[in-house]
């Protein structure tokens, strides 16, 4: 009795469909992606039922970490240039092209104005490693704090700027209130608190 011969099939599979799918997904991700900004500190934001998405542009982001250190940054590169110019003028340091380039790439910073020049002249790898202590909030009575100046200059650089405050869940109200009080001193009475959406259907129903 002879064994039934199984015909050998070719192992080559037509990859065309798979390739189509892969590139379809790829184009979707390329188009929808927005890169994570490299942040100075890890901030764990609280969740809320707020539904309004944060606008994509014209944002002055103020980040407050658990210890109350404050970091500021704007999203638009042209605004960053104008901002740097104003800061340099106020704190009397000169800015060259490489420093401008460095500032353009920085999503946020948190150093006193006196150390800003030093930070900008560092090599990029070095800058990523250095621990930034946070913007100075100290007010010496006649003069506003450096933080107030930074906010003011940012708003002068781009009048459409919206102010977004991003704090850690565990930041004390004391630190948050300090930032808000200083913003109010600069006539910023409307701002956005950044929260993560809860995204639970149950919560959504309860809202109304």
């Amino acid at each position: 009795m002879s064994k039934a011969k199984i015909p050998r099939k070719s192992t080559a599979i037509d990859m065309t469909a798979m390739c189509d799918v892969a590139f379809l997904l790829l184009s979707f991700f390329i188009l929808t992606t927005k890169f994570k900004p490299n942040e100075q500190v890890q901030v764990n934001i609280p969740s809320s039922t707020a539904q309004i998405p944060l606008p994509d542009k014209d944002i002055l982001l103020i980040t407050v970490d658990t210890k109350g250190a404050v970091y500021v940054g704007v999203d638009d590169q042209n605004t960053r240039l104008a901002w740097l110019e104003k800061i340099a003028e106020r704190y009397k340091f000169t800015v060259d092209g490489s420093m401008q380039q460095a500032f353009k790439t920085m999503d946020n910073f948190g150093v006193p104005a006196s150390n800003l020049k030093q930070l900008l002249t560092m090599a990029p790898e070095e800058r990523a490693k250095v621990k930034q202590p946070g913007v100075s909030l100290e007010v010496v009575p006649p003069a506003p704090s450096e933080f107030m100046d930074f906010v003011l200059f940012a708003r002068q650089s781009n009048p459409n700027l919206r102010i977004a405050v991003k704090c850690d869940k565990e930041t004390s109200y004391e630190a948050v209130n300090e930032v808000i009080a200083q913003l109010q001193e600069k006539k910023v009475n409307k701002f956005n608190l950044i929260t993560a959406g809860r995204g639970s259907a149950q919560e959504g129903e309860e809202k109304e």
């Binding site: 890169f35 409307k190 950044i194």
Partner: peptide, 30 residues
């Protein structure tokens, strides 16, 4: 080509931020 496609997909999936943060608007009295 498929390999390359999936490699790039993986990269973009990991680099992207999917859940957009929500903003809670606060108006303080002047």
């Amino acid at each position: 080509m498929v390999d390359l496609g999936f490699l790039l997909i993986t990269f973009f999936m990991l680099a992207t931020t999917m859940n957009k943060p929500k903003a809670m608007e606060v108006n303080k009295p002047a």
